[in-house]
Design a protein around this nucleic acid. Structure first.
Length: 218
DNA sequence: ATCCCGGATT
DNA sequence: AATCCGGGAT
């Protein structure tokens, strides 16, 4: 447990990537970024985020610009229903004094903000410890433990327990960033890079694979 | 439980 | 060409 955490943090120090939203501190802009990142690659989000930051640096700016402006932002990301969602988000934030609510309940009450987005925003941008359990984490921890993988982590108790025990009390931001990038770069859905994985010795799946390689090698 | 949508992987 | 993948709503 402790070793897994340490290895991830070490890996993260060398490999966590820098995106404009990761160094952004404005609560409105960072929540917009998290919403845009849903089911969307970071490379696609990057230019759109820059444009939002440029044109709508405050929620009030997007409210003033109107629903069509919001739709224009999300159109390039291909998921049309996020346009109205983004506009409603702007209205909600504007009505809340320009800053999104930070209580998990009020945050989750926003349409378009689910468990992942709430946890990511709070832990990465608001200095609140939150445990991220998305399908990437589900895949990673399923391999680690050898337990069956449920793509939808909803209701899988052991997942939440384990993820919660792994998430540090203090270094949760660095840890969550490391997990996000690690599951995208190393513990990938199809062909995970076990040979270079810092966790392969702590991982049921990784050990199995390395053993297989040993037997095949001469 | 199913749908959305476009990119990645095979 | 076909399949897989993902966060959230319903």
């Amino acid at each position: 447990m402790r070793r897994v955490r340490r290895h991830l943090l070490t890996w993260g120090r060398a490999n966590v990537r820098d995106f404009p939203w990761r160094s952004e501190t404005d609560p409105w802009l960072t929540l917009v970024a998290e919403m845009l990142l849903q089911r969307t690659r970071a490379a696609q989000v990057e230019p759109v985020f820059r444009e939002v930051r440029e044109r709508y640096p405050a929620a009030a700016d997007l409210v003033r610009a109107g629903p069509d402006a919001a739709a224009a932002m999300t159109a390039r990301l291909g998921i049309h229903w996020r346009g109205p969602l983004l506009y409603r988000l702007a209205e909600t934030v504007h009505a809340n004094g320009g800053v999104p609510p930070e209580s998990p309940g009020a945050l989750r009450a926003i349409t378009g903000v689910g468990p992942y987005t709430a946890a990511a925003w709070l832990s990465l941008h608001r200095g609140r410890r939150a445990v991220i359990v998305d399908s990437n984490v589900a895949r990673w921890l399923s391999r680690m433990t050898g337990r069956p993988y449920h793509r939808d982590p909803h209701g899988v108790r052991w997942l939440y327990d384990l993820a919660g025990r792994l998430t540090p009390a203090r270094a949760y931001r660095d840890y969550n960033l490391a997990v996000l990038d690690f599951t995208m770069a190393i513990c990938t859905p199809r062909a995970p890079s076990c040979p270079v994985c810092p966790l392969r010795r702590d991982c049921v799946y990784g050990r199995t694979r390395m053993d297989a390689d040993t037997h095949h090698a001469r």
